[in-house]
Amino acid sequence: MLFDLKFFKNLKLLHIITKKHFRGEKIGHRKSPQRGASIEFAEYKDYTPGDDLRFIDWNLYGRLETLYIKKFHNEEELTVSVLLDTSDSMNFGKPAKFDHARKLAAAISYIAMQHQDTARVYSFARGLDAATENGFRPGHIHRIMGFLENRVSKGQSTNFEETVTHFILKNRRPGVVFILTDAMFGTDLAVGLKKLFHRRFEVNLVHILAPEEITPDLAGLVELSDIEDSSKVTLQINKQALTIYEEVLKETIDELRKTLIGMRMRYQQSITSTPFESTMLDLFSNMHHRS
């Protein structure tokens, strides 16, 4: 069982905070800079002919004999998109990175729906999975869980740029995007992220890594087989090779982090061996701090 009651119970206190305001399609629980029809008072404004008479504050007219119109805050929903990497590389590790990512996706979706936001879960490998492109509406949490429960990683290598292009076509209105991936795309990733940046999406990249990727338990002459493209590399792995590997991994992560920061995006590393709750807390506390 991937998701249980305890899983949801721990998520109730969390909610998604964005750095900027996104206009929602529908009314939600998220305060908008736009004035609207919520019950929360925002300000007064002088009456001008044409204003809706229902919003004249008659009590104030009685005291001041001047007509003022009461303005209320508008409350909109937030569109939270979760891009779940289902490429073969996500199958790596024990537990598999994909399982970890599914939990994160479910948690993020659940938190969004708890706050009347729209959660859309997309799975992608070579491209965006057509079965998920419509997203899920509030109240559809069981469908999301079912969807994630049954999702399997596909045997395709990732084409992130194509995925993003497809995603943007489906989401004209910007919102918050959580990309749950192991970021094994090479240069594709930066191009895709740049597109999201230009479309003003607030991107949170959760970099999912298995402990075996951080410190590989390999030694001697090893033929390394890429589980995505089946390419093979033979290498004598020794202390020096492992040191260089760790250096390259660190440089790669640093470069990714730098790219993300340059585009005012957030980077969160999540290692599958760490407890899921702490990953969530890290992810959301970082969002609070940065906002």
Binding site: F92, K97, E213, V248
Partner: peptide
Amino acid sequence: KSRPRHAAVSSNIIWRIVISRLKP
């Protein structure tokens, strides 16, 4: 004994960089 052992990795991208630096 020194026939290469097979090991699956999530990606060879990093290992290729390692090889280029290691000059095997």
